[in-house]
Design a protein around this nucleic acid. Structure first.
Lengths: 285, 285
DNA sequence: TCGAATTTGTGCGTATGTATC
DNA sequence: GGATACATACGCACAAATTCG
């Protein structure tokens, strides 16, 4: 390793930069984008690779240079190469496979249309569930696994459903797949006070799919949904269930459907962050 | 350093684990939560610290153990302590300050109510702009900086506004502050074909705030907004403008307001991901 | 089928700069 | 000014997974 100042090949170079190759690049770039003259090498390399991925130069599935390759190209140590890759992993745009390499992940996003009003998908034919519609919109086949059971509401769910803690609820957990790949998780809760003994008590038993339609068949007119959108890093179960690389981000949606102000269903949805775009169409006044 | 197998104090220990202290903890935990017997030390330490932060044991602003402290507590090398901290930084829940320490960040979330229908905030009095209302809801003072100018629409904006590329638009960039702290960025575009020569041509000139109200005064009835929510890691400008630690995630919202199907404003909003929760209230049918 | 080469994942030790206290 | 702490960087080792001849 040597420091740029010592060579002084004529190029203006940032003090403290330990990579002549990289410094050269960066000095050449300072006129254009953000000023990188003081950027640490590992961030500059990450920025380089990121740009290559986002520009399409490294398409989804393409292999990034190996650590040894980066060491040669940028004249840095293995540590720096590792940190650069770690940054991109943290952003979820690359994925390492031990023994093989580091690969660019798919950055195209599936679109998830919020319920309520999206005119383009209201026609009578076609897929019946909201998820299947979104998948079809992306040219994919939407399927799902589910598991329903009776349970007692805990504090959190009781508050969201407006019932007493311990009240009986139907808990249904879903795993949604697009073209066979898991892409979405959710757990939904319905107060049994609303559905018990009706033909729609078990959400996936009948042919009618979706809360709104199901409730409609038993005379409950769902008229509003509130969605609370947040983001956090995926936990171990989610990484497992969604087949994600470790430490990626997810959208979480907490929704509650109400009929005349009474909650009839609440659910927690988890979507891989880098893979989804959420679309809301809202009427004004 | 020494390897667990060599001491065999009776506890069952994962092969290859280099931290007796940690292995002890983890073996003790395997009955409860996720199986960590094969978790790398740096992830196990990160999980430990994360749990302490999320449980409130380490409140916002609290100092985490120093690298040296972690080395002693968990009997690991500096490298492992660094990687553990790096994981938490990547998640945006801690922030390092050179020369000082690593601190837990505030994990409470501001609530951002989507426009349209939130009954609780429709009364005539109180703050006039949507942002000021959200800030007031969190007990904070909402203020903002802005900069308006005439510009020509680029490809992207033209497509969103349904005008020809190069058509004149009013571009207004905002930086919103809650109690003086920058918390939100946005850039909005309005086709001058709609507003030119009217009293609301310059968005921040008059006393009437907000697209809907402003357009209303010139007889344009805004009736719908579409929001597209995504997430990505913050770029250098955003880190600077929002005073974020490097490499944190942001929500991005791309919204477009329309009046009778004609776009009258489109904007890009950037919100620090870990600091915001987005709430949508949607009518059904 | 097998073994050698490559590559990542995890981990060790250390050094220097510089910000903070 | 000195001690502490993080940020960035160097070097190395070994296991496990993958690839390929």
């Amino acid at each position: 390793m040597y420091v740029c100042q010592r060579i002084r090949i004529g190029a203006e170079v940032a003090p403290g930069c330990h990579s002549p190759t990289l410094c050269g690049r960066l000095v050449g770039l300072t006129g254009g984008a953000a000023d990188m003259s003081n950027t640490p090498a590992y961030l500059a390399i990450a920025a380089d690779l990121r740009a290559a991925i986002l520009s399409g130069e490294l398409p989804a599935g393409a292999k990034l240079p190996s650590e040894s390759g980066l060491m040669r190209q940028y004249e840095v140590s293995r540590t720096v190469a590792k940190w650069a890759i770690a940054v991109l992993k943290g952003e979820g745009i690359v994925e390492g496979r031990a023994g093989s390499g580091v690969y660019a992940r798919d950055t195209t996003r599936l679109v998830r249309h919020a319920p309520g009003r999206d005119v383009r998908f209201r026609s009578g034919d076609g897929p019946t569930s909201p998820f299947a519609r979104d998948a079809a919109g992306a040219g994919q086949q939407g399927t799902w696994e589910h598991d329903s059971r009776h349970e007692k509401a805990d504090e959190r769910i009781a508050a969201r459903l407006g019932v007493e803690p311990g009240a009986p609820v139907m808990r249904t957990s879903y795993r949604f797949l697009a073209d066979g790949e898991p892409t979405q998780l959710s757990v939904s809760y319905e107060p049994l006070a609303v559905t018990e003994g009706t033909p729609v008590e078990w959400p996936e038993d009948g042919s009618v799919k979706g809360v709104v339609a199901r409730m409609d068949t038993i005379g409950v007119r769902v008229d509003e949904v509130v969605e609370r959108v947040s983001l956090r890093s995926a936990n171990a179960e989610e990484v497992e269930a969604l087949n994600l690389p470790a430490r990626t981000f997810v959208h979480t949606i907490e929704w509650t459907y109400t009929a005349g102000g009474t909650p009839v269903e609440t659910a927690d949805i988890v979507l891989p962050g880098g893979r989804y775009e959420l679309v809301y169409r809202l009427p004004i006044d």
